[in-house]
Design a protein around this nucleic acid. Structure first.
Lengths: 141, 141
DNA sequence: TCCTACGATAGACAGAGTCTAAGTCAAGAA
DNA sequence: TTCTTGACTTAGACTCTGTCTATCGTAGGA
């Protein structure tokens, strides 16, 4: 994660304690890639830096998204979730009951599946694929 | 749309003026398939039936969704949008700047693109594909 | 026509996110 | 090292979207 901070600093980011903590929280999931809501990020950040405000968390997440370091995922129309796994293209598997999210990496480029005739003049730059169903826990219950 | 109302009535739906107006508003887009937010549906319904309440619009939309007559689309993490084009499988093309939405119908079944090894025990039942980019208007500006 | 259960209503409430004004501090300059 | 400045942070009010509850109204069957 320190390389992320260095990368951001190289792009003119001022390195504050708050931003550092938010970046660390997002990276905290490690390989499991938890997809936290802004509120969860705030709660975890506040555990280390109690005076951090919600606005700062929202600002920092927004900046990370616009810098392409984090992906915003809107799976349910409720709170957005933030996915730090931005550098490897992937898709999401979402449980319709409990909301659990898993990253999946099928091969192929879904963008190629949309013929020009179906683009209606749009300049398409990305695709978001979300598979919905029941996770093993919920399917068992 | 009257066939929709008949279909719903056949399923035990009580046919009230409010429900009729909401169904007509959703159908009002016709072939263009506008994707209205709940608030927009309420505004248009209120133009015909001024005393209709927000709660009624939300209730009716929720019922139409659970009956499979309308699809709920969460493209931006803000307000959900309601898509009356539920009977023909399709995907969405969304403008990242102005939020415009278009239905597209590429061939093929995106569900087939996810190998069992990438399903992690999930019982996958549907896929949601959203292409993002700039619409012709926004790309020109 | 009458009854009654289902549906509609107003308005309070809750969650997610944005905005503003004022105070703080990271990092470059001297 | 100290100073300076503008970017960053903060509290808290505000907006928007959606839900809930108690009460009132009415569609549709008897």
């Amino acid at each position: 994660m320190s390389d992320l901070l260095e990368r951001l600093r190289g792009r003119g980011w001022r390195l504050t304690a708050q931003r550092r903590v938010v970046a660390e929280v997002l990276d905290g999931g490690g390989a499991s890639h938890v997809h936290l809501t802004a509120d969860e990020v705030h709660a975890r950040a506040a555990a280390r830096l109690p005076e951090i405000s919600r606005a700062t968390v929202y600002n920092t997440l927004g900046e990370l998204v616009s810098l392409g370091e984090v992906i915003e995922v809107a799976t349910d129309g409720r709170a957005k979730r933030y996915d730090p796994n931005a550098h490897r293209p992937h898709q999401h598997l979402v449980c319709s009951r409990c909301g659990a999210i898993r990253d999946v990496h099928p091969g192929g480029d879904p963008l190629a599946d949309l013929p020009a005739a179906e683009r209606f003049g749009f300049t398409v730059s990305e695709v978001e694929v979300t598979y919905r169903g029941l996770c093993p826990n919920c399917a068992g219950a």
